[in-house]
Design a protein around this nucleic acid. Sequence first.
DNA 1: CGATCCGTTGAAAGAAGTCAAAATCGGTGG
DNA 2: CCACCGATTTTGACTTCTTTCAACGGATCG
Lengths: 220, 220
Amino acid sequence: MRDLAVCASLPPQEVDSLERYVSSMELQANAELARAGQPCRQAYSVTSGMLRLVRTLADARRQVVAFVLPGHFVGLTEHVVHRQSIEAVVPSRVCAFELDGIRDLRQRFPGFEHSLLERACRDLDDAHDAMLLLARLSPLERLASFLLRLRGQMKIREDDPRMALPMGRGDIADHLGLTVETVSRSFTRLREQGVIALPDPQHVEILDAGALSELASALR
Amino acid sequence: MRDLAVCASLPPQEVDSLERYVSSMELQANAELARAGQPCRQAYSVTSGMLRLVRTLADARRQVVAFVLPGHFVGLTEHVVHRQSIEAVVPSRVCAFELDGIRDLRQRFPGFEHSLLERACRDLDDAHDAMLLLARLSPLERLASFLLRLRGQMKIREDDPRMALPMGRGDIADHLGLTVETVSRSFTRLREQGVIALPDPQHVEILDAGALSELASALR
DNA sequence: CGATCCGTTGAAAGAAGTCAAAATCGGTGG
DNA sequence: CCACCGATTTTGACTTCTTTCAACGGATCG
């Protein structure tokens, strides 16, 4: 609890007061934490596993707006109802904060609000990166950027070339604005070029980090 | 000055203290307020005209991340250097806030920080909309969404079908992730379908608002 | 052991991009 | 006021790349 990023800005003795508004939840894979259209009641901090934020159009076109990894925070919004659903990619554990409680804490501890604002600014910047990726990068470039960014978010030792891809190809496709087929083809092209290895669909090994960054074309 | 959205949350007598950190600036069309890579010193509030936030790749691929209209606020970031340039679309006037001053005010007036956070949450939500648009909408749908969103941001009387498009086709293309040619073709398709009229390239008249919203396919 | 889901691969179709040229607009100077 | 020049927009023909449609292989689960 005290390890949560959002709590770092609260006076230690006040973390207890936070606990009144918090409950821990276990989620199984593909469980829905929130659904688009529902009223917003809670915000969430991921403890383990991985979440996805999904916007869906009436005709089922989907966009995975973000993957949320442990230590990150979602659900803070100015809207009354959710505009996106929040789902578990794999079995996960989250802390749920009552939004009322958050509002209270925000008022009482400026430092708390401050760190929420910092987080929001970073998220906004990430979203802008994603926009450039979706608007202007080729499928190969998108996949390379995605792999590098995901790797950056997971805490992996520099020297370990292996990384897990917990999400399925469909989620990657809906995150990168492509089809599953193009995602799959892009993976195999990277493999054929010797940039990565694919022991199995859920694991990538980065063989040529230089080539991968090259492809990511200076996105970050 | 007192009319600025960001100031509404400050106690009236403190707006004066804000003024110490503020200077008003006139910009001619295409002037650069900030350039990617430069250190961040100021944030800006637009008084008149229009700005654009632009991310550029090494090979000159461009993404207009957002157009900024009067009353809106840009430049608040957690980064030390700008990741995007800020440029005037047309002759504009802005208020420049020293970031140091902002930091000071944020500490002294929780309500100020609060409204900055609200703004950031809204911007993040907008960016997520933009991601869905870039990832999954057809050129025609993107243009329809863009026109309706822009119209919503400008304060135009409901019953006035006319609206101005201050930015060039190139900016629209780089905002929607298309080429100028496809943007132009999309405009003419909308015209041929009787959805809009184009008195000249810088002005649109919305003839069939229903059809336009239909095309925008429930994006907002 | 069969059914289902997921990922991969192949062939075909279609949509946006590229290249090139014509048309229009706006501003300048005669 | 008009003519001209450059920049922007529009249009056309063609190419390219992603999507679409279809089928196959492998893994998982009842």
